[in-house]
């Protein structure tokens, strides 16, 4: 994942924007590309998209806040998405979530103080057969139990928020 501080942001932004014609219907696609590359939409990214499409930045903001795929804040190094889709819910996903909340000391939507973990819930990762499921960055973990979660989080580094409690 790259940082918006990179010197060549202007060039990077340009390369994303110019993949698309200057039509409003490509706004979402551009935003998705920025989101994917940097993991959130910075003010500067929003401004650039708006300028490129010649529409007010407010329009881009309204899209960014309406659609769940976008974040306006920087996330942790590891993004934990705990599935609370129906299949996972009936297989006790809330217990998994609580265990992680306890271990990291953060709630869904939060990021640990050291910037290591962000916690989110999602509705269905499409792997319901393995419920309950979570995904950390791109790695899937299925058939979870509280015990398994502890083991898995250990793999992602000594710290996390775990020690800070």
């Amino acid at each position: 994942m790259e940082s918006y501080k990179d010197e060549d942001f202007a060039a990077q932004a340009k390369s994303i924007l110019e993949r698309y014609p200057r039509e409003q219907r490509f706004a979402l696609a551009m935003m998705q590309d920025f989101q994917r590359k940097y993991d959130y939409l910075s003010q500067e990214a929003i401004r650039q998209i708006a300028a490129y499409l010649q529409i007010p930045s407010g329009k881009i903001y309204s899209l960014a806040t309406f659609y769940k795929a976008f974040s306006l804040e920087k996330k942790g190094k590891y993004i934990i998405k705990v599935c609370d889709g129906t299949a996972c819910h009936v297989r006790s996903s809330m217990q998994i979530l609580e265990e992680i909340e306890k271990l990291l000391g953060i709630m869904p939507g939060g990021t640990t103080a050291d910037g290591r973990f962000s916690l989110e819930t999602v509705k269905c990762l499409g792997t319901c057969a393995l419920a309950p499921v979570m995904v950390i960055n791109d790695e899937y973990y299925g058939s979870l139990t509280a015990g398994k979660v502890r083991e898995i989080l250990k793999k992602y580094g000594d710290g996390g928020g775990a020690d800070e409690e």
């Binding site: 609370d84 889709g85 129906t86 299949a87 996972c88 819910h89 509705k123 269905c124 499409g126 792997t127 319901c128």
Partner: peptide
Amino acid sequence: EGDPGAFMDR
């Protein structure tokens, strides 16, 4: 395919 718990279309 927004239904949580469904993955037919996928």
